[in-house]
Simulated assay, not measured.
Amino acid sequence: MEYKMEAGSVMHPKSVCFDLLLILLGMLLLWEPLGSRGQNDTEPIILEGKCLVVCDSTPSSEPAGNALGMSVRSGSGRVAFSASRQTNHEPTDMSNRTMIIYFDNILVNVGTHFDQESSIFLAPRRGVYSFNFHVVKAYNRQTIQVSLMVNGWPMISAFAGDQDVTREAATNAGLVIMEKGDKAYLRLERGNLMGGWKYSTFSGFLVFPL
């Protein structure tokens, strides 16, 4: 079989095959970098069954997870709160029933998961949370004991019991694993709190989800 190129000239079939092979190789070389650019910085990279994730700095939504059981934190998943006691006296409800320490001055409430009225933090998702508190007693010759409660159970506690110090703080901090919907708050286990003046604070934030 012969292929005509111009009048009076012919091309051997082997030459045609060689030229086609060169064209295919050229297309493959051009295709490879285009394919590699299809993977952007925000997509998970699968490597031997493991997922390497690069987080977008400005994500549009919070992903729930993937097939490997891994989740990605994003800007919409940030959780943090900090509150102080501003009023001088506690509501009568505290000393009579709940013994919850109320914080009426919100400093930070990212995600709005800390309820000012009840002074209870509601965990929006399962994860490791960091809490710290600094509760000042207002009078000397008394001891106060304060506990960080999660669903009614004391997790960490602190006391201030120097009888000769007027303003002493019961303070502590720790990490707690919480499930979605768990409640965290401060409870006065012993003593009386009559002071505020922004000396006492309660803060927490999501370290990372689980």
Rank of each mutant, 00 (worst) to 15 (best):
E32T: 10
K137M: 03
V136T: 02
M70W: 07
G111M: 12
V176E: 02
G77M: 12
L25N: 05
A67V: 09
G49R: 03
L34K: 07
V136A: 05
T42S: 14
S157H: 12
Y102I: 08
D104Q: 12
C55F: 02
F121R: 01
T98N: 06
W31E: 06
I23M: 10
I45G: 03
R125L: 09
M99K: 09
R78I: 13
K180C: 11
P154S: 11
A158G: 11
L188S: 00
V150G: 00
G69A: 08
N96D: 06
Q142W: 10
I177D: 06
M70S: 09
F81N: 00
T58H: 14
R97N: 11
V72S: 03
F131V: 00
M149C: 00
V128S: 01
T166K: 08
F208T: 15
S71A: 10
V53P: 00
L21K: 10
A80R: 07
Y199Q: 10
I100G: 06
R167W: 14
F81K: 01
D56Y: 02
Y3I: 15
G38W: 10
N172A: 15
A184M: 01
L107H: 11
F114T: 09
V10A: 14
S203V: 09
Y3F: 06
M11C: 00
S36Y: 00
M94R: 04
I100R: 11
L188G: 03
G191W: 00
V128R: 05
A138P: 04
E117M: 05
K14R: 15
L107N: 15
A170K: 06
A80G: 11
G77S: 15
S36D: 14
Q145T: 15
L28H: 05
S71V: 11
G152L: 13
F18K: 08
F202S: 08
G65E: 08
S203E: 03
R37H: 15
R97G: 09
C51P: 14
K183R: 13
I100L: 10
N88K: 13
V79K: 00
S57V: 04
N105I: 06
H134Q: 05
L122S: 08
M27E: 15
N109W: 01
M1E: 06
K14M: 15
T112E: 10
A123C: 04
T58G: 13
F205Y: 14
L22D: 14
M70R: 06
P63S: 02
G75I: 11
G127Y: 05
K183D: 07
S74K: 04
R125S: 11
D115A: 03
D162P: 03
M5S: 15
F18H: 08
M1H: 14
V176C: 01
F121K: 01
T42Y: 03
I156M: 05
N88R: 12
A67R: 11
F81Q: 04
V108H: 10
N192H: 13
G75H: 12
R187Q: 06
M94C: 05
S200P: 07
R126G: 09
A173I: 12
A7V: 10
N66M: 07
H113M: 08
M155K: 07
V110R: 07
N109Y: 02
E117R: 06
G65L: 13
